[in-house]
Simulated assay, not measured.
Amino acid sequence: MKRKELSSVEREALLTTLATQLVREEISSGQVLRQLRRDVLGMSQTQYADLVGISRRTLSDLEAGKASPTVALLNQVFRPLGLQVGLLPRNRELRERLLLVESSTG
């Protein structure tokens, strides 16, 4: 079965949904990486690992949450997806307030 190409609006909506889930700690950065690699780029682990210059095993470990990556490595693997690592408050309530402020201004 051939994968359906996502439109730019669909890609943006998926990215927004995943980023919100990540901030709310509903999913991990590895789960975000896996879903974007598959659904946005339509690449296998081997293809994506080659693209970002890491081993397939390292990518697999990142996606499964079995790695303790550096900020540099996270930036390296998220760069092709147009993402970078950033700082968020550790306090969940403050993160939720930031999401509410962003959604009311956006």
Rank of each mutant, 00 (worst) to 15 (best):
Q35T: 15
Q35K: 12
Q35H: 02
L36S: 15
L36W: 06
L36C: 05
L36R: 09
L36M: 15
R37M: 03
R37S: 04
D39T: 08
D39W: 05
D39C: 06
V40A: 14
V40D: 10
L41T: 09
L41K: 15
L41P: 08
L41A: 13
L41V: 09
L41M: 15
G42T: 13
G42Y: 14
G42N: 14
M43G: 04
M43Q: 14
S44I: 11
S44R: 13
S44K: 08
S44D: 07
S44W: 11
Q45A: 10
Q45E: 04
T46D: 11
T46P: 01
Q47W: 05
Y48K: 01
A49T: 04
A49G: 03
D50Q: 15
D50P: 00
L51Y: 13
L51R: 15
L51S: 12
L51N: 04
L51P: 01
V52P: 06
G53P: 09
G53K: 11
G53D: 04
I54G: 05
I54D: 01
I54K: 07
I54S: 07
I54F: 14
I54Y: 12
I54M: 09
S55Q: 10
S55D: 12
R56L: 03
R57G: 12
R57D: 10
R57E: 08
T58A: 13
T58L: 09
T58I: 12
L59C: 02
S60R: 14
S60P: 02
S60K: 13
S60G: 13
D61I: 01
L62P: 01
E63L: 00
E63D: 00
E63G: 00
E63H: 00
E63A: 02
A64F: 07
A64S: 14
A64E: 14
A64D: 04
G65P: 06
G65S: 11
G65A: 10
K66V: 03
K66S: 06
K66E: 10
A67L: 11
A67D: 09
A67Q: 12
A67T: 10
S68L: 14
P69Q: 10
P69A: 02
P69T: 09
T70S: 13
T70L: 05
T70H: 05
T70A: 06
V71Q: 02
V71E: 05
A72C: 02
A72V: 08
A72P: 02
L73C: 02
L73H: 05
N75P: 04
N75Y: 04
N75I: 03
N75E: 11
N75D: 15
Q76K: 15
Q76F: 02
V77P: 03
F78E: 03
F78N: 01
F78V: 01
F78R: 05
F78P: 06
R79T: 14
R79V: 06
R79G: 07
P80D: 03
P80N: 06
P80W: 11
P80A: 05
P80K: 08
L81A: 06
L81H: 09
